[in-house]
Write a protein that binds this DNA or RNA. Structure first.
Lengths: 349, 349
DNA sequence: TTGTAAGCGTTATCAG
DNA sequence: CTGATAACGCTTACAA
């Protein structure tokens, strides 16, 4: 772990100036003989370019940050999995920030762009406050936001379409003959919670079904919350015949309760999850789920940022990723044949 | 995105030298009046310290890298989830590398430490070759290896104990009265694959059970491989009464096949997975699994690295994390009561 | 083609 | 207490 050699060390050793060393190292036109000497010296010394000094001069770090609420969340994980290879291919490193959905932390990250330790940022905030927008406007590096932002916000933006997603699910359930379709939602003061509530009402309306307050239950976005919410729902409306759950974890909790109450899925109650995480394919019965394209959103965000990094100023872009309904046994009653093609779920060595 | 202010900008504005600005910014003894002027100027200009210039001078980046095969793998994910907060609390940023288990990529990462863009590295290689060890020896920054390394390798090291882990599982199955316990393993040329094969033989021996080649099946570490392997196993030995699977994904595949073949779990065949990922709690029946402490290993690695970063040279340390058997329905037949306490599985908003 | 020297934004030394 | 000034390691005019 001795101090590494610098271009000075090489210059001495090769008997040339540091400028020549730099030129050779950067492939600029140089006399053959000099190239040879420099390369030899670099080789012998095990020289490696100092990225920090380079960055100071070039004003580029070749690093990009991704800030999300929690890396343990399968949705963000799916994003990271796509973002990483795109950046890597373009020669960028990925710096990860986990903000625990704390607004102050998110704003900190935006602010810290001023430190110039990254060339750009991809951020997926759970709520977007005025403070977010102010800091965003003053951000010292390009930012891509994944998620809803107020109309007119001048920023590259990637969105899911949970409105259409919920509609896909409700249409599917309706086509299966379900008429008492409940919504098991997360908190309404989050962007996704609010979006799903609105979409549910809208989709019901389009189907000509009445909106019934008793069929809506709200908890948090985790499995035990799903258990509680669905237990309450069943007590209130034992005749419910379908559950639209705001994410897969809630849906897993729903499956638990339905099983415990002796109901068959989908015979008595059909269940749809959301996000189409790995858990949906792992559960039994396997879970029909609305994919909001987390992977695609991650990829799109990375590409948007790279484009901005390469082309500088341009009009902000909006990419909306279409949702997709992945039908599995919790609504169709049919498990996939064996041996099936599971999508790569990530290894487990 | 205009060029940010530097200490020069502030110095001009405040009518002092850059040295004074630096002193104020670093809290060194300075006259009150000067402090005031500098702070005011910094405030007005929205000054933020340039991390790159700082690093060049201080020779510290406050960044640490974590290199793993694939962030999508739940095992590495569990590590990242622990590593991140430990580093964050100590003021370090996390740079993520995904090497796809390609040795050349891993060696690249080790080599790139010479670029000095991070202060240290945590690495979890799937196989450790001679080239790894050579590069490791010459590494220009502290490294912590998660996983087995040859005896005598002078490096901070964190290990799982899959030997004991397999033994825990087999003892459990034996206590339940199972006597024809199969091993569904991954490739033998990986470190975990080899370790599990050896541990299986050893544990059988300790129990006084014969080693039966027909009860061992090898595939890869994914769910479809589990499906294939267990189908072959059942065809050969329909009397098998327990499956020790080398990871949870394989075990999920096993559950699929058993279900399709009309066997009850655990009535006819008990199943144990390994790694205790989120999927184990999500499956039905829920999966008994051997936790190899991925989370703890991640945490230990981060702490080891931080200690080395703070205290410099010292003897390399070895931390071995004990395994833990998490008993669920696939062996006990009992699902947890509702509403249960699920460990935080990561959200899903 | 090559070397000298300036500068990227900080920190730190050393006189005043 | 403060201000010049020299690094940190690299890139890049500009001159030779």
């Amino acid at each position: 772990m001795a101090d590494g050699p610098t271009i000075n060390t090489i210059a001495e050793r090769a008997g040339v100036s540091i400028a020549s060393v730099s030129r050779v190292l950067n492939g600029l036109p140089t006399r053959q003989e000099t190239v040879r000497k420099v390369m030899a010296a670099a080789e012998e010394l095990g020289y490696v370019r100092n990225a920090v000094a380079r960055s100071l001069k070039s004003r580029r770090t070749n690093q990009v940050a991704f800030a999300m609420a929690d890396i343990g969340n399968p949705v963000y994980l799916a994003m990271v999995r796509q973002i990483q290879p795109v950046l890597k291919a373009a020669g960028y490193r990925l710096v990860l920030h986990s903000t625990d959905a704390i607004a102050a932390d998110e704003i900190d990250v935006l602010h810290s762009l001023g430190e110039r330790y990254v060339d750009g940022l991809i951020m997926s905030p759970l709520r977007v406050t005025g403070a977010h927008l102010d800091t965003l406007k003053a951000a010292r590096a390009p930012v891509v936001i994944i998620g809803q932002v107020p109309e007119g916000t001048r920023v590259d933006n990637v969105r899911a379409d949970s409105r259409t997603g919920v509609k896909l699910a409700l249409d599917h359930l309706h086509a299966l003959g379900r008429r008492r379709i409940a919504l098991v939602n997360g908190p309404l003061d989050t962007v996704p919670g609010a979006a799903r509530a609105a979409a549910y009402a809208e989709a019901l309306d389009a189907l000509g079904l009445p909106y019934d307050e008793e069929l809506v239950e709200i908890g948090d976005f985790y499995r035990p919350d799903g258990v509680r919410a669905v237990a309450a729902l069943l007590a209130r409306r034992p005749d419910v015949d379908a559950l639209m759950c705001a994410n897969d974890l809630i849906a897993l909790g729903a499956l638990d309760v339905l099983r415990a109450s002796g109901r068959r899925v989908p015979g008595d109650v059909a269940v749809v999850g959301m996000d189409d995480t790995d858990l949906a394919a792992a559960s039994w019965p396997s879970l029909t789920s609305v994919s909001l394209g987390s992977a695609e959103r991650g990829k799109a965000a990375a590409e948007l940022l790279l484009d901005r990094l390469q082309h500088g100023e341009r009009e902000p872009r909006l990419v909306t990723v279409p949702p997709r309904l992945v039908v599995r046994a919790s609504t169709s009653g049919r498990e996939p044949a064996l041996p099936y093609d599971t999508p790569q779920e990530g290894g487990g060595r």
